[in-house]
Amino acid sequence: MAVEPLLATRAQRAFILTITLQAIIVLTMVGITFRKVEVKVAFVGDYKTLPCYLALFALAEVFELLMAFDALRLRNIIQLLGILLFHMALIVFAAIQIHETKSALLNKVDCVTDFNPINCDGPGTLWRAVQPFLIVVPCIIAAAWFVMMFWIKELYSEFGWAIFHVVGANPKMKRMYQWYQIMLCLLKFDFFFFVGVTMQLLIIVLARNTAEFGVTVAAIPVVLVLLALCGVAVQREIKWIMTISLVMMLAASSYFLYKLVRIYEPASRSAYATTRASLTIFTIVAFILLFGTFAVGLRCFADFDRGLQASKVNHGGSSYTPVLTKLELFGGNNGTQQEEGSYYGGTQLQPRISIE
């Protein structure tokens, strides 16, 4: 079976095109919202929700597009399914942002006695001007999600046999390799949700002159290095790095639990008023993903030194190369010899595919 190059099939091109088009439309809607608010108010206090909203969506759309290319390059069905779940989370986040933007704009002024078009609701107000663009965003993302499901079904048929060519037909090896793929996929999503949580904290919540702001900034490179080293450790089966990474994951999980408490405890809950819903969701998902990564990491650790390392290291999206068939090894005519009554019914034998 021939292996198609990246973006050589209709399903691959359509999948990437779907994500790209919805990203352009969504970022345009968010950008228009940002601009309409920018000309009316300064982005201080509660209004900082809007630039954070734009930054998160820009990060999410770029991240999803890169993940899609990566999944197609690696022919990774598990990562494609992860992208579907991530896209569903984007729908929820976009819907929540309608409420949070409204809370930021309609900031408890007395509109009966002191009506103004910036902080009140009604015809001609700022909220009514941006509301349609905010509503369009989750609708577009949801429509793209259904289209993506169709093309992922096509890609499943196209890529579903790839693991066989990496590890062979051994069920144990296949299961180990699938856990390895899940681990790498989780590490990539850990990156996004950690950056999403810290971005909201730094832009909206934390004051620059506080110790918590400094700790949060310092944690960013530490966690990113941790995730990168964990990916190297699980691929190269380096036990001491994997051990350190797993311990650090537990510490990072504890940090997310601490932040969740801070969002709702009476002494600090007012600082999270305009971003409580989205930050809560991001924090909970980040905690679940990180704890899940720890659990899957333990499973992958148990598979170290069991014969899978060569397949992990040598597997790449463009490294499919044909190898000699048995007929070629024993002097056949370049795999084209035909045999009467053979299993192939006298048809031409094709080179087998391997991943070296």
Rank of each mutant, 00 (worst) to 15 (best):
Q235L: 01
G231C: 10
L250H: 04
S254K: 10
Y255L: 11
S254Y: 15
V232A: 04
Y264Q: 07
M249Q: 15
S245E: 12
E237Q: 15
C230S: 13
L260D: 06
V261E: 09
A211Y: 03
A233V: 04
M242I: 00
F213D: 02
V217C: 10
R269G: 07
Y255K: 10
M249A: 13
Y255C: 04
V234H: 02
L260V: 05
M249C: 13
M249H: 15
I241F: 13
R262T: 11
L260P: 02
V225R: 01
M242N: 01
F256V: 12
C230Q: 14
N209S: 09
I238P: 00
A251P: 02
A251T: 13
I244C: 08
T243S: 14
N209T: 08
I244H: 05
V225S: 04
F213C: 01
T210N: 07
I241G: 02
E237Y: 10
L226T: 15
S253N: 03
I244R: 07
S253C: 09
L246N: 14
I263T: 03
R236Y: 08
V217I: 15
V232N: 05
Q235T: 07
F213G: 02
S245Q: 12
Q235E: 04
A219H: 00
L246K: 09
V217S: 08
V261S: 07
W240C: 07
S254H: 12
Y255P: 03
Y258F: 11
L227M: 07
S268F: 06
E212T: 08
C230W: 10
S253F: 04
V223D: 00
V225K: 04
G214N: 15
I220S: 04
R262N: 08
E212I: 03
V225M: 01
A267M: 11
V234G: 01
V222Q: 01
K259P: 07
S245I: 11
Y264W: 13
A218F: 05
K239S: 12
A251Q: 11
L227V: 13
L224M: 14
T210E: 14
E237M: 12
A211N: 05
A219P: 00
E212M: 05
N209P: 02
